[in-house]
Amino acid sequence: MNAFRWITLAALGVAVAVPFTRAVVAAEFVDPLSSPAIQSEKAVNGMFTGLASAGQRLVAVGQRGHIFYSDDNGTRWKQGEVPVSSDLVAVQFPSPTQGWAVGHDGVVLHSDNKGETWTRQLDGRQVGQIMLEHYQQQAAPDDALLADAQRMIDEGADKPFLDVWFANEKTGYVVGAFNLIFRTDDGGRTWVPLMDRTDNPGALNFYGMRAIGSDLFIVGEQGLVLKLDPTSQRFVGVPTPYSGSYFGVTGTPGAVLVYGLRGNVYRSVDHGSNWEKVELGLSSSITASTVTADGRIILVSQAGHVLISSDDGVTFTQKPQERLGPAAAAQATGSGSVVVAGAQGLRQLPFE
């Protein structure tokens, strides 16, 4: 099992063991990058790990390349057409029609029709070569970066992208395992590696990326928080009081929150210079977040707890739920509900 499939499952609190022999793998392996996602109505009940809004539409991504969309706030879902069957992790739409999804095997997908059909823009078979060519062209090539690029080529398409963020329909980023970060300024037609522009000497995994107000943040392993310096165009380290993994970042223009393992959430109101812990009263990891149209911040735990803040993240109130279930992503809707994605499919929960 791919090491980074375990990352996705671990975040959901799911333990999986798959016995196999080399003979079985050799006989049955089908490259997910060469196999379109299977169309199946039952797939809507499978594992989903990413959610986004495309205007009034909701779009969910998950295992085996499955992408579903809903035009009624998550009551009914239709399946999109996807050219790969790689597990997908995250999705984002900077406009109602244009969206990007990322996942395992270094795959980056694009849709220009609100998630109904998708095309591949990048995958792990190209990542290493793009890195190698880019860093070979530098005035003073960095031997370590060249070695990393060659390793990517030699090891093949096994490194995932774990999040995506676009400022608009042209400029965006994808981030992932081992310091992977690429930028595009032409809507994904070409990609530029930025591994030389991150304060991440340990090549820690990047788990989340979001813009909060005018600041663009990346969070990851071992308390890693980076913020884009607009002048140098470098992602610089931002110290926080916690050394455990952060899974995501959220907030409002006046406050940024980073969240992760064991219910740890930290809040800053000065662009990341200082942080205070937000007490949730939970030991369960926080794995998802969303912000409502009126600015309320919603956090969702690994176990499925839903917590709501109406004061820019100073305090949170837990919303009682009849049934808890593992959660990997959340998206507020316009109908007074939040859709939660996880190992049990897609659930619509009221939060009013």
Rank of each mutant, 00 (worst) to 15 (best):
L58K: 02
V91Q: 02
Q79A: 13
S283I: 10
D186M: 07
Q39S: 14
V291E: 12
T8F: 02
S53D: 06
E276M: 12
A147D: 14
T49F: 08
V44Q: 13
G260T: 05
A101S: 12
L132A: 14
G342Y: 06
G237H: 14
W191C: 09
G263S: 12
A60N: 08
S34E: 15
T287M: 05
G244T: 05
F217T: 01
A343Y: 12
T333W: 09
V18S: 14
L216I: 07
S111E: 07
W77A: 06
V24C: 00
G62D: 07
R210D: 14
A327R: 01
T75S: 13
P201C: 11
A293W: 04
E279V: 13
V236N: 11
V30H: 12
Y259Q: 00
T250I: 07
D31H: 05
D199C: 11
L280A: 03
R151A: 15
N73H: 12
A288I: 05
G208E: 04
R234V: 15
R197W: 08
G65I: 01
G156D: 10
T315C: 08
G263M: 04
G103P: 09
L228K: 08
R197V: 08
N73I: 00
N45G: 12
A17I: 12
P160I: 00
D148L: 11
M209C: 11
R296S: 13
R296V: 05
R323T: 15
P201W: 12
D87F: 04
V91L: 09
V25W: 13
A144G: 05
L146S: 11
K319W: 11
S283R: 07
E133A: 13
V269W: 00
G208W: 02
L132T: 01
S70R: 00
M152Y: 15
S310R: 06
G50M: 05
S273A: 14
L261M: 15
L194N: 06
E81Q: 13
G74L: 03
A15T: 15
T315I: 06
G106K: 00
S310N: 12
F316D: 02
N200L: 09
D72P: 04
A149S: 14
L180F: 12
I38E: 15
A54H: 04
E133Y: 04
S86H: 05
Q92G: 10
I130H: 09
Q150R: 11
L109E: 05
L226Q: 03
A101Y: 03
T315F: 09
H104S: 06
Q302R: 13
G313P: 06
G208P: 03
Y173V: 01
S337E: 09
M47F: 11
P83C: 10
K78T: 04
V238F: 09
S86E: 08
T198L: 15
Y173I: 02
T333Q: 08
N200R: 03
M209T: 08
G244S: 12
G99S: 09
N113Y: 10
V24H: 11
G281F: 03
E28P: 02
D311M: 09
A329C: 10
P94T: 03
L51Q: 01
S35G: 01
A140G: 03
V269P: 01
A43C: 10
Q92E: 13
P193M: 02
L146V: 09
T190V: 02
A17K: 05
H66E: 10
V61A: 09
V174K: 04
Q63P: 00
G202M: 10
A293K: 14
T333I: 08
A3L: 14
V340I: 15
F206V: 02
G220R: 01
A90F: 03
L226T: 04
